[in-house]
C-alpha cells in the first residue's frame, strides 16, 4: 500500500476515467462523421414542419457519459403559435 494514498488520493484515476469516456466517444465519432450536426439538422427539420421558431433560440446540449449520453434540445417556441400535437411520436 502506498503510504501517501492513506492521506490523499491522486488525480491519475480521474484522468484515466475522463480519457476512457472521451476517447470512446471520439473513436465512434471518427467513423460516424458529424453525428451531432446531423441530429441537430434532422430534429430541427422535423419540428419546423409543425412550429415556427427562431434558429438562434435553439440550444443543444450533449453530455457524454460512460454508459449513457444525453442529448438535450431546448427550443423556445413563441406563444400564440398554432399547436400541432396531433402527430404520434415514435
Amino acid at each position: 500500500m502506498n503510504l501517501l494514498n492513506l492521506f490523499r488520493r491522486g488525480s491519475a484515476p480521474v484522468a484515466r476515467e475522463r480519457l476512457q469516456i472521451l476517447l470512446a466517444h471520439e473513436r465512434t465519432a471518427r467513423s460516424q462523421g458529424d453525428l451531432l450536426g446531423i441530429l441537430r439538422e434532422e430534429i430541427l427539420a422535423v419540428i419546423s414542419r409543425h412550429v415556427a421558431f427562431e434558429v438562434d433560440k435553439v440550444q443543444i446540449k450533449m453530455d457524454r457519459g460512460k454508459s449513457v449520453s444525453t442529448l438535450a434540445v431546448d427550443i423556445e417556441i413563441p406563444n400564440g403559435q398554432p399547436s400541432l400535437a396531433r402527430g404520434c411520436p415514435a
Binding site: 502506498n2 501517501l4 494514498n5 488520493r9 491522486g10 488525480s11 491519475a12 484515476p13 484522468a15 484515466r16 480519457l19 476512457q20 476517447l23
Partner: peptide, 16 residues
C-alpha cells in the same frame, strides 16, 4: 509520481 497516483501509469496509457 505514477506510483503515488499523481500521474497516469504505463498500464493506464496502455489500456487506453
Amino acid at each position: 509520481r505514477a506510483n503515488r497516483g499523481e500521474m497516469l501509469s504505463v498500464d493506464d496509457v496502455l489500456e487506453i
